[in-house]
Nucleic acid binder design. Structure first.
Lengths: 149, 149
DNA sequence: CTTTTACTATACCTGTTTTATAGAGTTTGT
DNA sequence: ACAAACTCTATAAAACAGGTATAGTAAAAG
């Protein structure tokens, strides 16, 4: 399940992408327009900044703006940053592997095989969808150009 | 993330499938062999029984056994029963749809488009993988016969 | 027909994570 | 100096995961 944190992060990124030409965006403005609790949003934006996705400017006339180009910002990276690994079980995670104690032998664990397929299917989508893609979807209501499988 | 409840349920089902010819299996035996906390397992087996997946027999010589054939028992059904809907956001769930308040207009919500793809990708796998398939995987360490896409 | 075996049902508990909020601190522009 | 605006730490309510306790029901053995 996608947490609200990740959802807010994606909403914020879409918002910032749409306002790229307006200079830095205020946290207060973003919070009000997207109806995100302000203090919670501060935390999220800070995390995105520390990950190098956003940049900020302090003081009067400050605010947040994108640091990377919209086609470099991947949905998968944002979700991992906010919610942690995508894999449904740790033993199939590529970015945060950990052995599952429940399944004795990994090689013969059927759950692991199925969950690996699930992980790969999710990653295939979220790691090939950029903020650029999402902007197009917001206009069309559907995916425009498919990614290559 | 798959909870331990769902994981235990799948382990129990695989165990029961392997012991189909041995008559009813005791909760105690299953708990010991699969290293699942007994009281927790009782709850899980009861849920599976109430869903029509298992059957039970009380008294001496009693225990649990499969009610449905192994190719009718789908991984997706077990996960939904234990963990709830598969969809990462409620507004793309087929079995438990609910509107997301965060995204104003569903038609132009890019998050929704991506998460729908994710939901469908997950469902495609778990709703086409049966207990029979998992038993084969436990022998081979990988999927044997692919499902049709 | 009583005892033992074994599943059934409900309620409770405890630690962690999620979803925030409060408030002091720091930087910057004018 | 002053105010705008981001930064950082601490705190907390609510939900959830994972597990425990207790009492009850049904069936078979003897």
């Amino acid at each position: 399940m996608l947490t609200k944190k990740a959802k807010y992060a994606l909403l914020a990124l879409i918002y910032l992408a749409k306002h790229q030409n307006d200079g830095p965006v205020l946290i207060a403005q973003l919070a009000a327009d997207e109806k995100i609790p302000r203090k919670f949003l501060e935390r999220i934006l800070l995390d995105l900044k520390n990950a190098g996705i956003l940049q900020s400017k302090k003081g009067k006339g400050g605010g947040y703006s994108l640091q990377e180009s919209t086609d470099k910002i991947m949905v998968g990276d944002v979700i991992r940053l906010m919610d942690g690994p995508i894999a449904p079980v740790p033993c199939v995670s590529k970015t945060a592997y950990a052995k599952c104690k429940e399944c004795g032998d990994e090689a013969s664990c059927a759950i692991r095989v199925v969950m690996k397929e699930v992980r790969d299917a999710i990653a295939e989508i979220v790691d090939n969808t950029s903020l650029t893609d999402m902007l197009k979807m917001a206009n069309n209501g559907k995916r425009v150009s498919d990614y290559a499988i």
